[in-house]
Amino acid sequence: MKKIWFFIAFTAVLFACSDNNRSNNNPNIPNYSVNAYLDTNLPTYNKLLYPSNPVYVANYGAKGIIVMKTGEGTYNAFDAACPNQAFNSCTAMTIDGIYAVCSCDKSQYNLFTGLGGKEYPMKQYRVESSGTIIHVYN
């Protein structure tokens, strides 16, 4: 019985740590290298000290990135390119509360999950935080 529980726990951890290939292999968004360091001591990123206050960061990813604190020590980062539109057809998504809104079709994507009820969710990046520095990368 212990072996079965160990296997179930191991499998759950394995799947929890795997990448979401559906969001990270989106045919509409090119794969760009992202390696951003955001210092929350700077006024530009100060909002990231508080949950549910997303920040748009230009010049990273395909059309910039949107970063949001989701809880104590946890953050989400997504590409600001519309995930269900051709890459060059839309400008970067805009922030509306805890949602990112596509400029082409006005679809909303939840910044806690990246989901928007369409075929592809938002393209997600990895995030680590240490002190006042938030590292977004892929």
Rank of each mutant, 00 (worst) to 15 (best):
Y37R: 13
A100S: 09
D39M: 07
Y120L: 06
N25P: 03
T74F: 07
S130C: 10
Y75Q: 00
N20E: 11
K3N: 12
N35L: 08
Y109W: 09
N84T: 08
N26E: 05
L49I: 10
V136C: 01
Y56C: 00
F10M: 13
D105W: 11
T70V: 08
Y109P: 01
N84L: 10
T70M: 02
G114Q: 03
I8R: 05
C82H: 12
G114V: 00
R126G: 05
V34Q: 02
G114R: 02
S107R: 13
V13E: 10
V57C: 00
A58V: 01
I29V: 10
S23M: 09
L42R: 13
A58S: 04
F10R: 02
Y137A: 05
Q124Y: 13
E128S: 15
P54V: 06
W5M: 13
E72G: 08
D79G: 02
I98E: 11
I66M: 01
D105C: 08
P121L: 03
N59L: 00
V13K: 08
N21G: 12
E128H: 10
L115N: 14
M93A: 09
Y50N: 13
T113V: 01
N53S: 13
C104S: 11
K2M: 10
P51E: 08
D105R: 15
T132V: 09
T94L: 14
Y120P: 05
S23L: 04
A12P: 03
D96P: 02
I66W: 02
N24K: 15
K2H: 12
Q85H: 06
Y60R: 00
L48C: 01
G71M: 03
N41E: 09
W5H: 12
G97P: 03
N53E: 11
L115W: 08
Y37N: 14
K118C: 08
K3T: 14
Y125K: 05
A58E: 01
Y50I: 15
F112W: 11
N26H: 15
T91V: 15
C82Y: 11
V34H: 00
P121V: 08
T11K: 10
K47S: 10
A36M: 02
G73R: 05
C102W: 06
Y109M: 06
I8M: 09
N138W: 04
S130T: 14
Y45A: 01
K69Q: 14
I29W: 10
A9H: 03
K63Q: 00
N24D: 12
N46G: 06
Y60G: 00
V67S: 02
A9T: 13
E72P: 12
G117F: 07
T70I: 07
M93N: 00
I134V: 12
T74M: 05
K69N: 07
D19G: 09
W5S: 08
S107E: 12
N31I: 10
A16C: 07
I134G: 04
F87W: 11
A58R: 00
N84K: 13
F10H: 06
M1Y: 09
Y99M: 06
L111C: 05
N46K: 14
A62T: 04
M1D: 12
S52D: 15
Q85V: 05
K123F: 13
I95Q: 05
L115G: 12
F7N: 06
L115Y: 10
G131D: 03
Y137P: 03
T132H: 08
